[in-house]
Protein backbone atom coordinates (compact mmCIF):
# COMPACT_ATOMS: atom_id res chain seq x y z
CA UNK A 1 0.00 0.00 0.00
CA UNK A 2 2.94 2.31 0.43
CA UNK A 3 2.77 3.09 -3.28
CA UNK A 4 -0.82 4.29 -3.05
CA UNK A 5 -0.10 6.44 0.01
CA UNK A 6 2.91 7.90 -1.73
CA UNK A 7 0.86 8.72 -4.79
CA UNK A 8 -1.87 10.36 -2.74
CA UNK A 9 0.77 12.38 -0.93
CA UNK A 10 2.44 13.42 -4.16
CA UNK A 11 -0.94 14.32 -5.66
CA UNK A 12 -1.69 16.51 -2.65
CA UNK A 13 1.61 18.35 -3.11
CA UNK A 14 0.97 18.73 -6.84
CA UNK A 15 -2.53 20.08 -6.28
CA UNK A 16 -1.08 22.55 -3.79
CA UNK A 17 1.53 23.70 -6.30
CA UNK A 18 -1.01 23.98 -9.10
CA UNK A 19 -3.54 25.83 -6.96
CA UNK A 20 -0.92 28.25 -5.67
CA UNK A 21 0.56 28.85 -9.08
CA UNK A 22 -1.61 31.64 -10.49
CA UNK A 23 0.04 34.74 -9.12
CA UNK A 24 -2.05 37.41 -7.48
CA UNK A 25 -4.19 39.18 -10.04
CA UNK A 26 -1.64 41.63 -11.32
CA UNK A 27 -2.54 44.88 -12.99
CA UNK A 28 -1.28 46.25 -16.31
CA UNK A 29 2.26 46.87 -15.19
CA UNK A 30 2.07 45.59 -11.65
CA UNK A 31 2.19 49.00 -9.96
CA UNK A 32 -1.34 50.31 -9.80
CA UNK A 33 -4.44 49.07 -8.00
CA UNK A 34 -5.12 45.34 -8.17
CA UNK A 35 -7.59 43.81 -10.58
CA UNK A 36 -10.87 43.37 -8.71
CA UNK A 37 -12.34 39.90 -9.00
CA UNK A 38 -16.09 39.96 -9.60
CA UNK A 39 -18.52 37.29 -8.61
CA UNK A 40 -19.92 35.86 -11.83
CA UNK A 41 -22.96 33.63 -12.22
CA UNK A 42 -20.90 31.36 -14.47
CA UNK A 43 -18.17 30.70 -11.89
CA UNK A 44 -17.71 27.40 -10.13
CA UNK A 45 -18.97 23.87 -10.37
CA UNK A 46 -22.60 24.95 -10.77
CA UNK A 47 -21.99 28.07 -12.84
CA UNK A 48 -24.69 29.15 -15.30
CA UNK A 49 -25.29 32.22 -17.41
CA UNK A 50 -28.02 34.66 -16.51
CA UNK A 51 -29.97 35.16 -19.74
CA UNK A 52 -31.25 38.52 -18.54
CA UNK A 53 -27.72 39.71 -17.94
CA UNK A 54 -26.54 38.40 -21.33
CA UNK A 55 -29.37 40.24 -23.10
CA UNK A 56 -28.42 43.45 -21.31
CA UNK A 57 -24.82 42.74 -22.33
CA UNK A 58 -25.96 42.36 -25.92
CA UNK A 59 -27.66 45.75 -25.68
CA UNK A 60 -24.35 47.25 -24.57
CA UNK A 61 -22.49 45.50 -27.39
CA UNK A 62 -25.03 46.62 -29.96
CA UNK A 63 -25.24 50.14 -28.59
CA UNK A 64 -21.51 50.75 -28.08
CA UNK A 65 -18.96 48.05 -29.00
CA UNK A 66 -20.27 46.98 -32.38
CA UNK A 67 -19.27 50.18 -34.13
CA UNK A 68 -15.60 49.17 -33.85
CA UNK A 69 -15.37 45.52 -32.73
CA UNK A 70 -16.29 42.33 -34.59
CA UNK A 71 -17.74 39.14 -33.17
CA UNK A 72 -16.11 36.70 -35.57
CA UNK A 73 -17.29 33.09 -35.73
CA UNK A 74 -20.71 34.10 -34.35
CA UNK A 75 -24.05 34.36 -36.13
CA UNK A 76 -27.25 36.22 -35.32
CA UNK A 77 -28.96 32.85 -34.84
CA UNK A 78 -26.73 32.35 -31.77
CA UNK A 79 -28.75 35.06 -29.99
CA UNK A 80 -31.61 32.56 -29.64
CA UNK A 81 -29.39 30.87 -27.06
CA UNK A 82 -29.64 33.86 -24.74
CA UNK A 83 -33.41 33.95 -24.78
CA UNK A 84 -34.40 35.98 -27.82
CA UNK A 85 -37.22 34.43 -29.85
CA UNK A 86 -36.84 33.51 -33.49
CA UNK A 87 -38.77 36.60 -34.56
CA UNK A 88 -36.76 38.88 -32.28
CA UNK A 89 -33.54 37.52 -33.74
CA UNK A 90 -34.83 38.17 -37.26
CA UNK A 91 -35.64 41.71 -36.24
CA UNK A 92 -32.21 42.22 -34.65
CA UNK A 93 -30.44 40.77 -37.69
CA UNK A 94 -32.41 43.02 -40.04
CA UNK A 95 -30.96 46.09 -38.29
CA UNK A 96 -27.55 45.15 -39.72
CA UNK A 97 -26.45 45.22 -43.32
CA UNK A 98 -24.22 42.56 -44.83
CA UNK A 99 -22.63 42.32 -48.23
CA UNK A 100 -24.01 39.78 -50.69
CA UNK A 101 -23.63 39.08 -54.35
CA UNK A 102 -22.61 39.17 -57.04
CA UNK A 103 -26.08 39.86 -58.47
CA UNK A 104 -27.08 39.27 -62.10
CA UNK A 105 -25.19 42.43 -63.14
CA UNK A 106 -22.03 41.18 -61.45
CA UNK A 107 -22.21 43.72 -58.64
CA UNK A 108 -21.88 43.17 -54.91
CA UNK A 109 -24.75 44.68 -52.96
CA UNK A 110 -25.80 45.32 -49.35
CA UNK A 111 -28.86 43.65 -47.88
CA UNK A 112 -30.36 43.34 -44.38
CA UNK A 113 -28.80 40.45 -42.45
CA UNK A 114 -30.71 37.25 -41.66
CA UNK A 115 -30.29 35.03 -38.58
CA UNK A 116 -28.03 32.76 -40.63
CA UNK A 117 -25.52 35.51 -41.35
CA UNK A 118 -22.34 36.03 -39.38
CA UNK A 119 -22.19 39.23 -37.34
CA UNK A 120 -21.64 42.24 -39.56
CA UNK A 121 -18.09 43.57 -39.73
CA UNK A 122 -17.72 47.21 -38.73
CA UNK A 123 -14.89 47.77 -41.20
CA UNK A 124 -14.40 46.49 -44.71
CA UNK A 125 -10.79 45.52 -44.01
CA UNK A 126 -7.99 45.92 -41.48
CA UNK A 127 -6.49 48.90 -43.26
CA UNK A 128 -9.70 50.91 -42.87
CA UNK A 129 -10.01 49.72 -39.28
CA UNK A 130 -6.49 50.99 -38.53
CA UNK A 131 -7.13 54.27 -40.28
CA UNK A 132 -10.20 54.85 -38.15
CA UNK A 133 -8.59 53.82 -34.86
CA UNK A 134 -5.21 55.46 -34.65
CA UNK A 135 -3.28 52.64 -36.30
CA UNK A 136 -4.69 49.78 -34.29
CA UNK A 137 -7.22 47.16 -35.35
CA UNK A 138 -9.85 46.83 -32.61
CA UNK A 139 -9.63 43.17 -31.58
CA UNK A 140 -12.31 40.62 -32.37
CA UNK A 141 -14.36 40.24 -29.20
CA UNK A 142 -15.83 36.77 -29.64
CA UNK A 143 -12.83 35.06 -27.99
CA UNK A 144 -11.59 37.97 -25.89
CA UNK A 145 -12.24 36.40 -22.48
CA UNK A 146 -10.28 33.34 -23.54
CA UNK A 147 -7.56 35.43 -25.12
CA UNK A 148 -6.76 37.54 -22.04
CA UNK A 149 -5.60 36.37 -18.64
CA UNK A 150 -8.37 36.71 -16.03
CA UNK A 151 -11.01 36.68 -18.81
CA UNK A 152 -14.22 38.47 -17.86
CA UNK A 153 -12.55 40.07 -14.82
CA UNK A 154 -9.99 41.68 -17.11
CA UNK A 155 -12.65 43.04 -19.47
CA UNK A 156 -14.68 44.40 -16.55
CA UNK A 157 -11.72 46.11 -14.90
CA UNK A 158 -10.41 47.44 -18.19
CA UNK A 159 -13.73 49.07 -19.09
CA UNK A 160 -13.74 50.86 -15.73
CA UNK A 161 -9.97 51.36 -15.48
CA UNK A 162 -9.68 54.76 -17.20
CA UNK A 163 -8.02 57.76 -15.58
CA UNK A 164 -8.41 61.30 -16.90
CA UNK A 165 -4.84 62.08 -15.94
CA UNK A 166 -1.79 59.89 -15.51
CA UNK A 167 -1.98 58.91 -11.83
CA UNK A 168 0.90 59.50 -9.43
CA UNK A 169 1.70 55.83 -8.90
CA UNK A 170 2.39 55.45 -12.62
CA UNK A 171 4.85 58.35 -12.79
CA UNK A 172 6.41 57.20 -9.53
CA UNK A 173 7.04 53.76 -11.00
CA UNK A 174 8.35 55.19 -14.25
CA UNK A 175 9.25 58.91 -14.22
CA UNK A 176 9.66 58.89 -18.01
CA UNK A 177 6.10 57.72 -18.59
CA UNK A 178 4.07 59.97 -20.82
CA UNK A 179 0.93 59.35 -22.76
CA UNK A 180 1.21 59.57 -26.54
CA UNK A 181 -1.42 61.74 -28.24
CA UNK A 182 -4.59 59.83 -29.05
CA UNK A 183 -4.03 57.33 -26.26
CA UNK A 184 -5.88 57.02 -22.98
CA UNK A 185 -4.57 55.94 -19.61
CA UNK A 186 -5.94 52.61 -18.44
CA UNK A 187 -4.78 51.05 -15.18
CA UNK A 188 -5.31 47.50 -16.39
CA UNK A 189 -4.01 47.69 -19.95
CA UNK A 190 -0.48 46.32 -20.44
CA UNK A 191 1.71 49.42 -20.65
CA UNK A 192 -1.25 51.59 -19.56
CA UNK A 193 -1.56 53.43 -22.91
CA UNK A 194 -4.70 52.16 -24.63
CA UNK A 195 -6.03 53.25 -28.01
CA UNK A 196 -9.69 52.81 -27.08
CA UNK A 197 -11.05 55.88 -25.29
CA UNK A 198 -13.34 55.41 -22.32
CA UNK A 199 -16.72 54.15 -23.53
CA UNK A 200 -18.98 53.69 -20.54
CA UNK A 201 -20.53 56.82 -19.14
CA UNK A 202 -23.59 57.46 -17.03
CA UNK A 203 -26.66 57.84 -19.27
CA UNK A 204 -25.10 56.65 -22.52
CA UNK A 205 -27.59 53.82 -22.75
CA UNK A 206 -31.01 52.78 -21.47
CA UNK A 207 -31.69 49.14 -20.76
CA UNK A 208 -34.96 47.76 -22.15
CA UNK A 209 -35.60 45.85 -18.91
CA UNK A 210 -35.44 49.04 -16.83
CA UNK A 211 -32.20 48.20 -15.03
CA UNK A 212 -30.24 51.32 -14.26
CA UNK A 213 -27.37 51.56 -16.76
CA UNK A 214 -24.52 52.64 -14.52
CA UNK A 215 -20.99 52.20 -15.94
CA UNK A 216 -20.41 49.35 -13.44
CA UNK A 217 -23.64 47.64 -14.50
CA UNK A 218 -22.82 47.99 -18.20
CA UNK A 219 -19.25 46.75 -17.69
CA UNK A 220 -20.50 43.75 -15.79
CA UNK A 221 -23.21 42.88 -18.30
CA UNK A 222 -21.06 43.26 -21.37
CA UNK A 223 -18.24 41.25 -19.77
CA UNK A 224 -20.71 38.45 -19.05
CA UNK A 225 -21.97 38.70 -22.63
CA UNK A 226 -18.44 38.39 -23.98
CA UNK A 227 -17.77 35.43 -21.72
CA UNK A 228 -20.79 33.78 -23.29
CA UNK A 229 -19.57 34.72 -26.75
CA UNK A 230 -16.24 33.03 -25.99
CA UNK A 231 -17.65 29.99 -24.21
CA UNK A 232 -21.18 29.35 -25.44
CA UNK A 233 -20.71 25.70 -24.45
CA UNK A 234 -20.12 26.52 -20.77
CA UNK A 235 -23.52 25.46 -19.37
CA UNK A 236 -23.60 22.24 -21.38
CA UNK A 237 -19.97 21.58 -20.42
CA UNK A 238 -20.45 22.04 -16.69
CA UNK A 239 -23.75 20.14 -16.63
CA UNK A 240 -22.26 17.15 -18.42
CA UNK A 241 -19.09 17.47 -16.35
CA UNK A 242 -20.97 17.16 -13.06
CA UNK A 243 -22.54 13.89 -14.19
CA UNK A 244 -19.27 12.55 -15.58
CA UNK A 245 -17.34 13.29 -12.38
CA UNK A 246 -20.06 11.75 -10.25
CA UNK A 247 -20.06 8.66 -12.43
CA UNK A 248 -16.28 8.36 -12.25
CA UNK A 249 -16.33 8.64 -8.44
CA UNK A 250 -18.82 5.77 -8.23
CA UNK A 251 -16.94 3.70 -10.82
CA UNK A 252 -13.57 4.22 -9.15
CA UNK A 253 -15.07 3.48 -5.74
CA UNK A 254 -16.61 0.22 -6.91
CA UNK A 255 -13.40 -0.78 -8.70
CA UNK A 256 -11.35 -0.02 -5.60
CA UNK A 257 -13.69 -2.06 -3.40
CA UNK A 258 -13.51 -4.95 -5.85
CA UNK A 259 -9.73 -4.70 -6.01
CA UNK A 260 -9.51 -4.97 -2.22
CA UNK A 261 -11.79 -8.00 -2.17
CA UNK A 262 -9.84 -9.63 -4.95
CA UNK A 263 -6.44 -9.01 -3.39
CA UNK A 264 -7.39 -10.24 0.07
CA UNK A 265 -6.22 -13.73 -0.79
CA UNK A 266 -3.16 -12.59 -2.67
CA UNK A 267 -1.40 -10.98 0.27
Amino acid sequence: MSGLKGIIGAAAVAVGLVAGAPAALAAGGGHGPELKHQSWTFDGLFGRYSEKQLRRGWEVYEGICKSCHTLDYMHYRNLEQIGYTEDEVKEIAARFEVQDGPDEWGDMFMRPATPLDGFAEPYENDAIAMLANGGVVPPNLSVITRARDHGADYVYNLLLGYEDEVPEWATEADPTFSLAPGKSFNTFFPGYAISMPQQLFEGILEYSDGTEATPEQMAKDVSAFLQWAAEPELEERKGLGRMVLLFLIVLTGVLFAYKRELWKDAH
Partner: peptide, 17 residues
Protein backbone atom coordinates in the same frame (compact mmCIF):
# COMPACT_ATOMS: atom_id res chain seq x y z
CA UNK B 1 -8.65 -0.14 -13.64
CA UNK B 2 -8.73 1.57 -10.24
CA UNK B 3 -6.05 4.07 -11.23
CA UNK B 4 -7.64 4.42 -14.66
CA UNK B 5 -10.81 5.62 -12.93
CA UNK B 6 -8.84 8.14 -10.87
CA UNK B 7 -6.90 9.27 -13.95
CA UNK B 8 -10.09 9.84 -15.94
CA UNK B 9 -11.52 11.79 -13.01
CA UNK B 10 -8.57 14.16 -13.01
CA UNK B 11 -8.60 14.51 -16.80
CA UNK B 12 -12.35 15.18 -16.81
CA UNK B 13 -12.05 17.72 -14.03
CA UNK B 14 -9.80 19.82 -16.23
CA UNK B 15 -11.78 19.13 -19.42
CA UNK B 16 -15.13 20.16 -17.95
CA UNK B 17 -14.21 22.76 -15.33
Amino acid sequence: SVTLGAFLFLLCYFVFF
